[in-house]
Design a protein around this nucleic acid. Structure first.
Length: 758
RNA sequence: GUCUCGAUAGCUCAACUGGUAGAGCUCGCGAUCGAUAAUCGCGCGGUCAGAUGUUCGAAUCAUCUUCGAGACACCA
């Protein structure tokens, strides 16, 4: 286990980070017990000097636990007679490294006496440099020739590779270091010393024993505790594992992965390869806090107590009543009676990944309003190695299936340049600060607007844009609500087939958008919902529909069909839109909901379903989507022409203008269906239609690739109606209302104008 | 070091299975003053990260490079 001396605990892989550290790098001679045997293996002529295999290590404190020296079976090793400052000696070194090593030792003269493969030297005994112990030469494939000597000091108690190779050779897992980093009392020479302090004493001892060939401090990458930022050590301790192979856990987990929907889909490949390659899961931690592993282990045999399942139930009951300390303060006699002195109470705690991993059992299966498996697990993309996996393994082990039907991952938040946020860079944007300054709904809108499958950028500018967008959406809702003033749906709502075509278009557009939005929600495609919703507010509503219906809202009689039809559309739109908005801008949606007319019946937008009273436009009708698209294109072209007039100073408002449209036959026929109401759609005072042939050729424009149109705009010469702002020739013809146009007179004192289309 | 994902206008996103790069916002100019800490119109803005290749044709396919993010591994 990676062991942090400051935590006094094992660390999970994820808790280890690599930093540079200065270490003592030493070359140590392990003298051969049987000189003659070595010479013989190298087929070399014997001499009277000592023979030693040299190891190189950066952790001198692990030497007391040395149990072997490991060579690579296939590497070529040389036996060298070298003249060092301390005298002549025969050294065994990897051929590939012997020159650099001898150079390091200051050997001016040396002679290669012979060579042989590492495997030939297997099992020959060496003398430990300071302990009264002989250790064998062993061979393993993990030896490299990158650095060192080609011979690796092996301490099964202090290294993963060493532990594994030690198992193979039956080496004792000797770990003389306690959890506090101090050599145990029975450690020869160094008992009571802290490992970090013992390095010097060990180096000194090696020097005295004539075993130190070189001492040098080096700087290298070394594992550190992520919390304390201090170097950690590797320490073999007994641990509890969940086997990946027993009961075919790995196989079943892979099957469960395959039965789960992964979004984005590369998530599946990622977790699959992790599960294929992962070792058994070490679930025990030596911590003083956490969920205890409530086991009793026999002092001699190491077996679990025969009543373990029953005992765990009892402990669980106790913990439910008294909390986690029930276990830690439990006297074994309470549960085991006379067996107590035969058993050790395990004080290890569970890996925290286990805690969160079993939420499917501890939460989903415990609560009536939840169900197992979950519909969706949602977390950052780093959790393929974390929660998604720990949850999967425990669920598969318990129930044979994944704890989720689908898994959705999102990227990490980064700054405007795509850099990760870090305190030292000063580019961190704290969600709480955004909530405090801009409000939670804008933060939520940002989340929704971002494509979370990659990194999610946040910056002040982005948030500024979001609050702009938010205001647009909110203002649109506010306009809708304001124009619904006095509208009582149960009384004033107009049936679809009685509504004006433009209003039906608005409702149908809303209906189509709703289909897209529902699909997008089902696909967790939030950013496209945001785009569609915002565009709807800005384009279809703001710059077209709402702009046009203002005339009816403000000039026709309060209870006229013209006005109630528009209000009916507004009502349908706000009903639908509030629901679309609710999952994203919850506070705003809730606020809108309460202001929508009609009997809200103390309901909440959060428990309502999609609005179902929208209706599509009959495709075969004369004023279908095709028709309105053509009208929209005409309107766009007219706007450009009006802008020319405006820039020239001839007009301000578009109502100051009159428009003459010269159209090809088909287009003429299309536009003529709106009759005089085309002027309301274009928001101009007059619109006159003419055949294209009656205009001078060369200035016509293309619409739809199908139609040709020539547009002439001019400032109106008529008088402005003070009420509706249209410039009409009949203004002033009514003595009672000298400042009003004809339709306004009718609206003010007559039966009211009749609108058929828009 | 290895693997995976990503890079399109100042910002957020589009672009069906290769077929002339589109929206909205921002910005600029103007209008309006009956959505006003609003609203409407017009306009500016892109070597699709870079380079090669395949193709009649590449944002799209392939290879490489750069940058970014994540995961994995790790030196006795």
């Amino acid at each position: 286990m990676h062991w942090c001396l400051d935590c006094g605990s094992a660390l999970a892989e994820a808790e280890v980070e690599y930093q540079d550290k200065t270490s003592a790098a030493i070359d140590v001679a392990f003298r051969a017990v049987d000189k003659a045997a070595i010479f013989k293996k190298f087929n070399a002529e014997i001499n009277s000097n000592d023979v030693a295999v040299v190891i190189w290590t950066t952790t001198p404190w692990t030497l007391p636990a040395n149990m072997a020296v490991c060579l690579h079976p296939d590497f070529e090793y040389v036996l060298v007679k070298a003249k060092l400052a301390s005298g002549e000696i025969n050294l065994v070194l990897a051929e590939a490294l012997h020159k650099s090593a001898l150079d390091r030792y200051g050997a001016d003269e040396y002679t290669v006496l012979g060579r042989c493969k590492g495997t030939a030297l297997e099992n020959l005994p060496l003398q430990h440099p300071f302990n009264d112990r002989q250790v064998p030469l062993i061979v393993g494939d993990h030896v490299t020739t990158e650095t060192g000597t080609g011979a690796v000091h092996t301490a099964p108690g202090h290294g993963q590779d060493d532990f594994v190779i030690g198992q193979k050779y039956g080496l004792e897992v000797y770990n003389p270091v306690g959890g506090d980093g101090v050599f145990l009392a029975d450690t020869p020479l160094f008992a009571g010393q802290h490992v970090n302090k013992a390095n010097d004493a060990i180096v000194e001892t090696l020097k005295n024993n004539n075993a130190l060939l070189k001492y040098k401090s080096i700087r290298h990458s070394y594992p550190h505790c992520w919390r304390h930022k201090t170097p950690i050590i590797f320490r073999a301790t007994p641990q509890w594992f969940i086997s990946m192979e027993q009961n075919k856990l790995r196989t079943h987990a892979l099957k469960a992965i395959n039965n789960t929907q992964w979004m984005p889909d590369w998530g599946q490949a990622r977790i699959e390869s992790m599960v294929v390659n992962r070792p058994d899961w070490c679930i025990s931690r030596q911590r003083t806090w956490g969920v205890p592993i409530t086991l009793f282990v026999h002092k001699q045999t190491g077996e679990l107590h025969p009543r373990t399942s029953e005992l765990i139930e009892k402990v669980a009951g106790g913990i439910e009543k008294q909390g986690i300390d029930f276990w830690f303060s439990l006297e074994p006699e309470q549960l085991l009676g006379s067996d107590a002195d035969q058993y050790d109470k395990v004080t290890d705690t569970l890996d925290v990944w286990f805690d969160s991993g079993v939420t499917h059992a501890a939460v989903l299966e415990q609560r009536k309003d939840l169900h197992y498996p979950a519909d969706l697990y949602l977390e950052g993309s780093d959790q393929h190695r974390g929660w998604f996996q720990s949850s999967l393994l425990t669920s598969v082990a318990m129930n044979g299936v994944a704890p989720y039907k689908a898994v959705l991952t999102h990227g990490f938040t980064v700054d405007a340049d795509g850099k990760k946020m870090s305190k030292s860079q000063g580019n961190v944007i704290a969600p709480q600060k955004v909530c405090d300054s801009l409000g939670a709904d804008i933060l939520r809108l940002w989340v929704a607007s971002t494509d979370y499958s990659g990194e999610m950028s946040v910056s002040d500018e982005i948030l500024k844009r979001m609050s702009d967008s938010y205001r647009r959406i909110r203002n649109t809702a506010r306009f809708l609500l304001a124009n619904l003033n006095g509208f009582e749906p149960s009384r004033d709502m107009i049936a679809a087939d009685k509504m004006l075509p433009l209003d039906r278009w608005a409702v149908a557009t809303t209906w189509h958008l709703q289909q897209n939005i529902i699909t997008a929600y089902r696909e967790y495609n939030f950013h496209s919902i945001y785009q569609k919703l915002h565009n709807f507010c800005a384009v279809e509503l703001g710059s077209f529909y709402l702009d046009i219906i203002k005339d009816r809202q403000y000039t026709t009689q309060m209870n006229s069909l013209a006005r109630r039809s528009a209000q009916t559309a507004l009502y349908h739109i706000i009903e639908a839109m509030t629901r679309w908005l609710a999952p994203i801008c919850s506070f705003t949606a809730d606020e809108i909901w309460q202001a929508i007319p009609g009997d809200r019946n103390q309901s909440s937008v959060f428990i309502s379903t999609w609005y179902e009273d929208l209706h599509d436009l009959p495709a075969e009708g004369r004023m279908n989507f095709d028709f309105w698209n053509t009208v929209l294109q005409v309107r766009t072209l007219v706007s450009k022409h009006l802008e020319d007039l405006r820039v020239a100073g001839s007009i301000g408002s578009s109502l100051d203008a009159e428009v003459d449209l010269y159209c090809d036959d088909a287009l003429l026929k299309t536009l003529a269906t709106l009759e005089d109401e085309l002027r309301f759609v274009l928001i101009t005072s007059y619109v006159r239609l003419h055949p294209l042939t009656s205009s001078s050729p060369g200035t016509e424009q293309q619409i739809d690739t199908r139609h040709k149109i020539r547009i002439i705009t001019s400032a109106s010469k008529h008088n402005k109606c003070i009420r509706c702002w249209h410039y009409r020739e009949d203004v002033g013809q009514h003595s009672e209302h000298p400042e009003l146009c004809g339709r306004c007179v009718s609206n003010v004192s007559g039966s009211g104008e009749v609108r058929k289309h828009a």
